[in-house]
Write a protein that binds this DNA or RNA. Structure first.
Lengths: 236, 236
DNA sequence: CAGTGTGTGTTGTACAGACAAGTTATATAT
DNA sequence: ATATATAACTTGTCTGTACAACACACACTG
């Protein structure tokens, strides 16, 4: 029997409504006092819930106005191509070059797999990201089949895998580890990115931790940074 | 006339004592109730102060035990060479190859300078970082002279520039922006890192934001990632 | 018409108190 | 001597209240 915390209930309630777009991005949440009435509690508790959502990056607070829903992912400190995600500077497209399919784990994954993962098969898919119609990033993705079913690429919400996880499965990214290397382009990479063999390529290996236990997302990215550098920022 | 917030006073008081090692790493802070007595306030206010320090990464809380002082920097999400900072996996050394000196701003800085910075000269120094006695990272650093005096490298606390800023000047890193590129080694880089010209190098341009207004630290890092990849992790 | 208050609603800070829950050392019982 | 209970102390959750600071719309005033 676990103790249920009131602020946590409120937090999860609001989070779910944000994830399912009942509280859409850029809209304002009901006021703290309204939540007090709705949940029969005091502002202290409601504020604690909102504070957690603030830390998780779901909302931002504006003194005297209210709590505004944020598009998530922007403030995650994720590596992103300069001008990526939401910006209108560049025209970004994503093409799935290998449909999600069930395979064995790839030896190229640099992170140690858990026992659960090793005992499972894995789902793999490959994408190429284009900026201004030029291929810039080649991306391999894996995750354990026993933690999440295969998702067909035509089911991706707005073409995005992460948005699908959040909105359809209520799975959020909790953090990540990355390894970065500078490597010469192999023949396969050179072909898919339309460059010469040997050109310096930024190789990023990522493990995303998610809010679903046992579900890690593994990524292997090959970025042509000659025209578009990779950006990353984070703040306390 | 600005309003002074009680929790902010307490927060700054504790922060200062952590920075100056009056509360050393791994020790426990006085209990919340002791702070209440000391500052003539209630736990609500003290907890608010501790909460801020928690968010800033100065302390961690342990239910039933107390608040423990953390070594800062570890959980900042900074890019670091695999095994860097505190780990004993590798023997890491830093050599200052160019003593801090006053120069004009370098054109290679990719971030736009503020007016204050443009109107100031800048302090420049160069370091090379070694792992197992092999040069791995070449690092150029700049900051505006009118925001911080030049610091001689032999005054660095434990050889670290950031530790010096924190402990001697009470300046903390508040965040950073980075741009990553994969580039071929130029002649200068190849010489200083003891590699061949043309080898793929990870080029990282960083702007650190600090707690001191107008003070940004600019860095230009050239990393040989063939043996030691760069690591980065962050969590919510 | 432009500028100024003013009222209402919002979030921010702070007070005072109560009990729950985790940690640790000490005293007690076996 | 070894468990076990207890007490003291810690942080965590929650209630209830009050006022300050900020945003904004609206009426008022010049």
């Amino acid at each position: 029997m676990k103790k249920i915390k009131k602020y946590h209930q409120i937090q999860e309630y609001i989070k779910k409504r944000i994830q399912t777009q009942k509280y859409p991005p850029d809209s304002y949440l009901p006021s703290e006092n309204e939540f007090c009435v709705q949940f029969g509690t005091t502002r202290t508790t409601v504020r604690k819930a909102l504070d957690e959502l603030l830390k998780e990056g779901f909302i931002e607070k504006e003194h005297g106005k209210g709590s505004k829903v944020l598009e998530r992912g922007k403030y995650l400190g994720l590596l992103s191509v300069k001008g990526f995600s939401g910006s209108t500077d560049y025209k970004v497209k994503t093409k799935v070059t290998e449909e999600p399919k069930i395979v064995e784990w790839d030896a190229s994954i640099v992170f140690p797999l858990s026992e659960d993962e090793k005992n499972s098969q894995c789902v793999y898919f490959q994408r190429v990201r284009y900026i201004d119609d030029k291929p810039v990033v080649l991306e391999n993705n894996w995750y354990a089949l026993n933690a999440l079913e295969p998702i067909k690429s035509d089911e991706f919400v707005e073409g995005s895998f992460f948005k699908t996880l959040s909105q359809e499965y209520l799975i959020e990214i909790m953090g990540a580890e990355q390894e970065l290397r500078s490597v010469p382009a192999t023949k396969e990479i050179a072909e898919k990115l339309g460059i010469a063999v040997g050109v310096p390529i930024l190789h990023i290996s990522i493990r995303f931790r998610t809010s679903r236990p046992n579900l890690n997302l593994y990524g292997d990215l090959y970025c042509n940074t000659t025209e578009y550098p990779i950006r990353n920022s984070y703040f306390l």
